[in-house]
Design a protein around this nucleic acid. Structure first.
Lengths: 150, 150
DNA sequence: TTGCAATATATGTACCTACATATAATGTAA
DNA sequence: TTACATTATATGTAGGTACATATATTGCAA
């Protein structure tokens, strides 16, 4: 591991902005891959994990697929298919919404809740593992990224 | 657009590190989606674009699939299939390597080179569009991300 | 009330990924 | 030379994505 230039073996970045863009995308993918390999042990993908956390936030109320889509934000939604897979594994239940029969209620199951509880500790641990940079630096990173997105 | 907390409607991040991790992944995906929609006009995906740029770096020498894998780095390689698609569109040529008949030489075509030339200007333009943050800030971002990956 | 726009979800397609495994050519040790 | 490990690439599977489109229900205006 080293600078972004070494990583992708590109010596001449056109500009500091170009380098920054590559660096953010590269680091994001790097983090996602790490996280992904952690979650795989539980037979869970990152987006599936994300949905389970949203559902836990709603529990004991159900969430509609539409709410999941909103919270996942920039993802053009395939929430419907993700819920399918979570249901197959018994981590959520899905039923037609009583008041609006177009909608469906998605509820995290007891099994799903205990899965999340188990994963929580691991997640916290590996997030803390990024403490090679200080808390102040993390804060500065957050400020810059927020500013970048305008 | 706003802070990462607003974006994903999550009020309580466990820690500054957690927020940072989410922010990097989120921003990376945001950039990739933007870029992807630019490239789509040319019937090109981001990884395909990436490969074409690597091939241009080698031109007029060919690159083996193995070299492509190395340069793409953290991707577990499906370079083989990506080259397939680029070949179908006439942007690269593939032939068996003379010295090692397991390997194959991939060469960017004239058509591929002129495609890249056309895209170059657009790319530079949209990368400069991130100039809401200063060059010094971009540099600081790069430093922090490099440090993060250890 | 009836007809139509809007909404909630589902589905089809084409691309992407990781991981496991297959195939073919090469290098090498016995 | 022959058998076997290694290497370069290809392929199968299961998951992910964006975008377009289909279906069913609802809301609302004429």
């Amino acid at each position: 591991m080293g600078t972004i230039g070494e990583e992708i073996q590109q010596k001449k970045f056109i500009s500091e902005y170009h380098k920054m863009v590559m660096n953010i995308v590269y680091t994001g993918n790097w983090i996602t891959a790490l996280n992904s390999s952690h979650l795989r042990k539980h037979n869970l993908s990152p987006p599936q994990f994300n949905i389970l956390r949203i559902l836990r936030g709603q529990h004991p109320k159900p969430a509609t697929v539409n709410l999941l889509i909103e919270r996942m934000l920039d993802k053009m939604s395939n929430a419907s298919r993700l819920v399918d897979r979570l249901k197959e594994k018994g981590w959520v239940e899905r039923s037609t919404n009583e008041n609006d029969r177009r909608a469906c209620d998605v509820l995290i199951s007891k099994k799903g809740l205990s899965l999340l509880k188990k994963i929580d500790e691991e997640q916290e641990e590996w997030e803390e593992s990024f403490s090679g940079i200080t808390k102040a630096e993390a804060k500065e990173l957050n400020r810059l990224l927020d500013k970048l997105r305008g």
